[in-house]
C-alpha cells in the first residue's frame, strides 16, 4: 500500500512539474474551469430569483441547494483532477499500443492506467466548491450535527468511488473496442443526472429514471448522499442513504475491477 502511495505521489509530483512547465496553459485551464462554474452558479442564482425552493417541500432552498452544488463541485474536481485525464489518455494508448509499456510494469495495471496523469487545474473548481460550501453552511437555518461532519467526507469518498468505477468501466470498453473517443461525452451525459437533487426525478418519466440512476447506475447517489448529509436535517432516513452509498460504491468498485480485468485479458495490442 505504501508503495502504491509513493507511486501515486511520484506521478502527482511529475504532473505538477509538467503543469508548472506550461504555466500559461495551466492558468488558462484554471480560468476556463472557474469561468464555466461561475456561469452555472449565476444561472442557479437566477433560478432562485423566481422560486425559493427546488421542487415542493423538498428542503432544497437556496442555501442547501448551493451546498449541494458545492458538494458536486468538490467531487467532480477530485475525479477530473485525479482520474479523468488518465482515462482520456487510455483511448490513445490503446489505439497506438502505448498500453504495452504499462502492462510490462510490475504494478497493478488498473492502478497505473487510472491514476498516472493528473490535471491540477481541475482542482480550482474544488477550492471554489469548498468556499461555496462554507458560505452556504454559514447561512443555513440549521447547523450540521457532528455525525454529519463525520459522514460527509466518507460519503464524498463513496461518490468519488462510484464515479471512478464508471470511468474504469468506460476505459475497459476502450480496451475492448480499440477506440472509444466518445468516452468523455458519454461520461458527461451520465454525470449530468447527478448534478440535481433526486427529488426532481418524479412523475411518470422521472420515477423510472430515478430508479435507474439509483439502483442500476447509482449516479444519483454520488452527490445526493453527501449533500443530504451536510445540507438537510439529519434524520433516520439519512442513514439509509449513507448505507446505500456505501453498498453502491463497494459494488461498483468490485464490478469495475472484474470488467477491467476481463478487458485486459482480451487486449490485442496495436501493430508497431
Amino acid at each position: 500500500m505504501g508503495r502504491y502511495l509513493s507511486i501515486f505521489l511520484c506521478c502527482a509530483r511529475a504532473c505538477l512539474v509538467r503543469d508548472m512547465t506550461f504555466r500559461a496553459n495551466f492558468l488558462l485551464e484554471c480560468l476556463t474551469s472557474v469561468g464555466w462554474m461561475s456561469m452555472n452558479l449565476a444561472f442557479y442564482l437566477l433560478v432562485f430569483t423566481f422560486t425559493s425552493e427546488i421542487g415542493r417541500n423538498t428542503g432544497w432552498t437556496r442555501e442547501p441547494f448551493f451546498a449541494f452544488v458545492a458538494t458536486g463541485l468538490i467531487i467532480n474536481a477530485i475525479v477530473q483532477a485525479f482520474f479523468m485525464p488518465s482515462a482520456e489518455e487510455l483511448t490513445e494508448m490503446v489505439r497506438t499500443g502505448g498500453l504495452d509499456g504499462v502492462l510490462v510494469q510490475p504494478l497493478d495495471a488498473q492502478f497505473l492506467l487510472s491514476m498516472h496523469r493528473f490535471d491540477f487545474s481541475s482542482l480550482a473548481n474544488g477550492f471554489v466548491g469548498i468556499g461555496l460550501l462554507v458560505w452556504a453552511l454559514l447561512r443555513m437555518e440549521h447547523a450540521p450535527p457532528p455525525i454529519a461532519w463525520l459522514l460527509y467526507p466518507l460519503t464524498i469518498l463513496c461518490g468519488v468511488a462510484i464515479l471512478y468505477s464508471l470511468i474504469v468501466m468506460l476505459a475497459a470498453a476502450t480496451i475492448l473496442m480499440g477506440r472509444n473517443q466518445s468516452l468523455y461525452d458519454f461520461w458527461f451525459y451520465l454525470t449530468n443526472f447527478s448534478r440535481y437533487p433526486a427529488e426532481i426525478y418524479a412523475g411518470p418519466w422521472g420515477s423510472p429514471l430515478r430508479a435507474l440512476c439509483t439502483f442500476v447506475i447509482p449516479i444519483l447517489l454520488v452527490v445526493n448522499v453527501p449533500a443530504r448529509v451536510i445540507a438537510q436535517p439529519f434524520a433516520g432516513q439519512t442513514w439509509g442513504w449513507v448505507a446505500a452509498a456505501i453498498v453502491a460504491a463497494g459494488g461498483a468498485l468490485v464490478l469495475s475491477r472484474v470488467i477491467f480485468q476481463a478487458a485486459l485479458a482480451k487486449y490485442r495490442s496495436a501493430s508497431s
Binding site: 508503495r3 507511486i7 511529475a14 512547465t21
Partner: peptide, 26 residues
C-alpha cells in the same frame, strides 16, 4: 524489460530524470 524502438515509454513533457524516479518507485 522491454524496449520498443517505435514506442516512447518516457514521460514526453518531462526530463528523463523524472521518469527514472518513477521507475525507481515502481
Amino acid at each position: 524489460a522491454l524496449v520498443m524502438g517505435q514506442r516512447n515509454q518516457l514521460w514526453w513533457d518531462l526530463p528523463a530524470a523524472e521518469s527514472f524516479r518513477l521507475h525507481k518507485e515502481i
